[in-house]
Design a protein around this nucleic acid. Structure first.
Lengths: 213, 213
DNA sequence: ATCCGATGTTAATGGCGTTGACATTGGGCC
DNA sequence: GGCCCAATGTCAACGCCATTAACATCGGAT
């Protein structure tokens, strides 16, 4: 992003690093990608940035605060990709498909950020800092699909939640290899087809009240 | 399960514990529930079982092996609940609904096992040990719903994957509070409705080939 | 009764998160 | 320009955890 990946994170101008905060965030993202959330270590991040183990505490309260910062960057990047995917298409269906693919692409290409966002302790950053969420873009993309006003019994927010959950589930099952290894299923196709089914099912079943046992 | 939760895990008959292996698994499940996967510690599990920190190594190669055992128990329990939910109903739709609810109930009632199963390093136990998987029960429940033979373009396994992913996604989003807090959505209703939409959408869209960009 | 293997214990090693005391440096102020 | 402070690093130390090696205990086979 702001720091080119090619730059040596440990480059420093002297006693002071000069840009340690960003270097640590970038190092954390890399290490998360390489070793997963489990194997991530503050000391490693400091090492990769070329500073002592205590230096990070000048910029982050503790390890979790650094991870939260990685997660925050991830949420912003993610939202940008989602709105970008939405804008690139005029056909609402194509836009929707693009957003689904963007979701999987993000999970695949930014596993470090993705891990920080969801596999962490669950305490993500306060949503206020994110600005427009990927989810909001999703709801916006959904409205032209269901019509305005939406048919009786079709709440765009609920449908968006279902699309979101489906995307999330596919991404996680795919990340742990359970989809490809177990059933030879292509995650992209699976998600796109599933989203189409959700939308079509919602519209064809409009007017029915959900029963909750 | 086999060990009643009321029994004191640290009860021992003398120098030897007598049932340390099971006690450690149970202690791990409890601690996973109380403190999450992040905060789980082998030493804590040993403490709760009333033994020294080194004792667990007589029964498990390392910490991950203990967690894998918790995960294995979770998979078995989960599969049992799924098949149980399937058997309890003659109407295929009701059975399907029950399985969805059973999924969420498991994630809610056994967060320790659930964490070990999915939030772990991703290296779950070898599937051979599980016997009938919850997923297989899902496919079985699906067949009468889609008809036999299924319509053109409706692969029961793919549909089952989508239902699975949706369930997984709803469970995880619900666990991290993003559904209830963010949108006031009831996870149970959301999942049931989503599953119905997936099935209806699959049947109403039968014959179309999925396009994958 | 004896002996051995399974099961526990203690002590030590090495890594990590975190903190407090001390060092270095760049920039504001005279 | 030179002085001083706040920001930013380093070191050393503490406590906790995972893991292992050496030693202790006990139950059951012989």
């Amino acid at each position: 992003m702001s720091t080119p990946l090619t730059s040596d994170l440990s480059a420093r101008k002297g006693y002071h690093h000069g840009n340690l905060r960003d270097a640590l965030i970038e190092a954390a993202r890399q290490l998360l990608t390489e070793r997963g959330a489990q194997g991530f270590t503050l000391v490693d991040a400091a090492r990769r940035a070329g500073v002592s183990a205590a230096a990070p505490y000048r910029h982050f309260r503790d390890k979790d605060a650094l991870l939260a910062e990685v997660a925050l960057g991830g949420f912003k990047d993610f939202a940008a990709r989602q709105t970008g995917a939405l804008k690139g298409h005029s056909d609402p269906i194509a836009a929707f498909r693009a957003m689904g693919l963007a979701y999987l692409a993000f999970a695949r290409e930014e596993p470090g950020a993705y891990a920080a966002m969801f596999m962490g302790g669950g305490a993500g950053p306060s949503p206020e800092k994110i600005g427009e969420t990927g989810f909001e873009a999703l709801v916006r993309a959904l409205k032209p699909l269901v019509g305005d006003p939406p048919p009786q019994g079709v709440d765009p927010v609920r449908l968006a939640c279902q699309v979101w959950a489906l995307s999330h589930g596919v991404a996680l099952l795919s990340a742990s290899g359970q989809l490809e290894k177990g059933f030879g299923v292509n995650p992209q196709e699976l998600l796109i087809e599933g989203v189409e089914r959700l939308v079509r099912g919602a519209l064809s079943g409009a007017g029915k009240a959900p029963s909750a046992d």
